[in-house]
Every structure is written in structure tokens, then in C-alpha cells.
């Protein structure tokens, strides 16, 4: 089976017609489903948060069978992800996409667990510490996209689980947990 680094690619990735958007509805639905699963799986294991539809991306082409996803196909797969809340367009032109293999509220839950696991219930942390500090190393939070993290934190702020306060620059925004 073909691999991308340590990622095991599914069989369909080697079957040329899956790189052309299928005209028959039922066939297309199955095709879109397979691609959605593949994209989410790949992004989760590789910790990829933003995909540019017009940029190079390992899943967009398969040199072994000499096929590349058409723009139409890319747009269809990502629109399907967006409509399910597993992705969001970052621009009006639909060129950049934020991938949510966890939905924002799920990320909020992960943050809460992280806080409880480490006994940070009443602590203060900077946003940067959550993303790249020692404590988050080895957890899913490590390396999380800043936009996603901020939105998850805002959800928790609304629930009164924490307070976000501004520092002097964007880098040292801080969080005071009160779980």
C-alpha cells in the first residue's frame, strides 16, 4: 500500500477515476465521502489546519497513477466538509480552508480536560504556552492553529470557565482559568 510519510493511503487513492468528480449523483456521493474521510484523517495525523486549494498539497495529486484533482473536485470535497461543520472557508474566494477535524466545541472540551489533567484550574497561562509549552507537549493541543484555539477559548470564556486578557502584544495574550 502506498504511503505518505507514515500515513497509510487508502486503496481508492490509486484508482484514477476518484480524481475526476463523478457526474452520477450516487457515485459522486460515495466519492465525496471517501475524500472527506481521507482529508480529515490526513490532517489529524499530520496536524494540518489550513489548506490552500490552489497550492501544492500531498493529497491533491498521486504521481504513481499520474492524476491530479481538478479544481472543481477540490472545491466539491471542501464544500462538503464546510457544510458538515468540519471545515470553514477563510476567504470569500474559497481558496483557503480551515480544517476542523475536531469541531470548535470539541476543542473547547479538550482544553478543559487539559486544564483538569494538569491541575491548572486556577492558573494563568499565555495562549502561546497552551500551543507550544511543555505542558501541552504530546497532547492534541500542541501546535494547534491559533485561530481555532482562540475560538475555543472564547467559547469557554462565554461559559465562564476562563477569562482572556490582553497583553501588550498579540503574542502574550493570557488566559486565567477558573474551572
Amino acid at each position: 500500500m502506498q504511503k505518505l510519510g507514515d500515513f497509510k493511503l487508502p486503496h481508492f487513492f490509486n484508482y484514477p477515476p476518484y480524481f475526476t468528480l463523478q457526474p452520477v449523483r450516487e457515485t459522486r456521493e460515495k466519492q465525496v465521502q471517501l475524500w472527506k474521510d481521507l482529508i480529515l484523517d490526513y490532517c489529524r495525523t499530520q496536524k494540518i489546519f489550513i489548506i490552500g486549494l490552489e497550492e501544492e498539497f500531498p493529497l491533491f495529486s498521486n504521481p504513481v497513477i499520474e492524476r491530479t484533482l481538478s479544481h472543481e473536485a477540490r472545491e466539491a470535497f471542501f464544500s462538503a466538509l464546510v457544510s458538515e461543520g468540519r471545515a470553514e472557508w477563510l476567504d470569500k474566494g474559497h481558496r483557503k480552508c480551515l480544517i476542523l477535524w475536531h469541531r470548535i466545541q470539541d476543542w473547547a472540551g479538550i482544553i478543559l480536560n487539559f486544564v483538569k489533567d494538569n491541575g491548572f484550574e486556577d492558573s494563568v497561562m499565555t495562549v502561546e504556552e497552551i500551543r507550544s509549552g511543555i505542558e501541552s507537549r504530546g497532547t492534541e493541543l500542541h501546535g494547534i492553529d491559533r485561530t481555532i484555539l482562540m475560538r475555543a477559548l472564547k467559547i469557554l470564556e462565554q461559559k465562564g470557565k476562563l477569562a482572556i486578557f490582553k497583553g501588550t502584544s498579540a503574542d502574550d495574550e493570557g488566559v486565567k482559568f477558573s474551572v
Binding site: P17, P23, T27, R67
Partner: peptide, 22 residues
């Protein structure tokens, strides 16, 4: 194609549409 027995493939460099049969 309509029966779901075939899939089209427009990705070959020769530009000819291929009909694949899973």
C-alpha cells in the same frame, strides 16, 4: 455510468475520457 457500474476519469494526459469499471 448511470447504473453506477462505471466511473469517468478525465485526468489522463492524452485528454481522452476513460471509463473505469470497478
Amino acid at each position: 455510468l448511470d447504473e453506477g457500474l462505471a466511473m469517468i476519469d478525465d485526468g489522463h494526459s492524452d485528454g481522452k475520457r476513460r471509463y473505469w469499471f470497478p
